[in-house]
Amino acid sequence: MIKRIKIVVIGFGSIGRALAKVIALKRKTINNKYGILIDVVGVVDSKGMALKADGFDEYELLKLCEVPRSGVNLFKPYAYQGVDLDVLYNSTQPDVHIELTPSEYSSGEPGISNIIYAINRGVHVVTANKAPLVLKYREIMSSALSKGVEIRFRATVLGGTPFIDTLMSLRSHDIERIEGILNATSNFILTEMHEKLVDFNEALRMAQALGVAEANPTLDVDGVDAAAKMVIISNILEKPLKIEEIYRESISRVTLRDIIDAVRQGYIIKSITFFDVRGGKASIKIVKIPKSDLFAQINGIMNGVRIRSDATEIVFIGRGGGGIETAHSILDDVISIALHYS
């Protein structure tokens, strides 16, 4: 028995394209393994939509990745000018809504409205957009519960690893603290500063050239992204924090002098996010750690988190947010939903 899962992808930047590509390459294998055929029936960006009720084929999915940014409305003959979720849902009848719009932490839009819309239409949600969870975690989860739909978000924290799933599964543990390197961009910049002995601005330029940092790097550099991830973690642990309560230090303040002094003393400088679960306090601090410390070995675009519970200590190391890795996390969430509801 083949179960068809129809998905719509809202937001079509680098993660959305990586997802389209991975689905094109793997949907046959996934079908063979699990009896689940994933059909992408709609793709939406800020200017328009591409809709195909019986699902884009492999070639069309790869071809979609060739449209320019905000250019889904050029994808003939499936193009639709402007964004209208009613049209999207009515014409494609999706099973899963993939929310990949950019994280925006003052209003949470358009992510919050999109996710609420999906829930109200009885559609499961997989999100890589953190902002709706950061600002409205409880509201979203309780309305999902009442509508009987799932919200999955493995891609939001250590997006290239199953960190979120593992954290959720530690049900018998009393988690005491969580700490680690949660932002790949700032970790990359600090690593560059150490390895090449360049100042912050030059390391940032390098990160931007390689596509590791965005044109406006504030969210990553100033610790907002790491704080957002900690808010999501705190909600999972039912000790919810508000993003504005988290103390943040920006890596833009780190000078080359600081790096050289630290290295001379046998230390390296990292941006570490720390959550004292019992005390209900979290922070993102620029700290000197000994070269032998575990976190000192996590460099470049790698992330690492240590979970300490009353029973044990678990460490996760992995890619934070590479397109292909994150796309796989999203896809794993989709498959989980499909398996659960078939």
Partner: peptide
């Protein structure tokens, strides 16, 4: 489509070029 794609790539090229000339 092609014009916009090429334009996007050229903008990226400029970013890479400016990072290179930095040091």
């Amino acid at each position: 489509k092609i014009i916009r794609r090429v334009d996007e790539e050229l903008k990226r090229l400029e970013i890479v070029a400016s990072a290179i000339s930095g040091g």
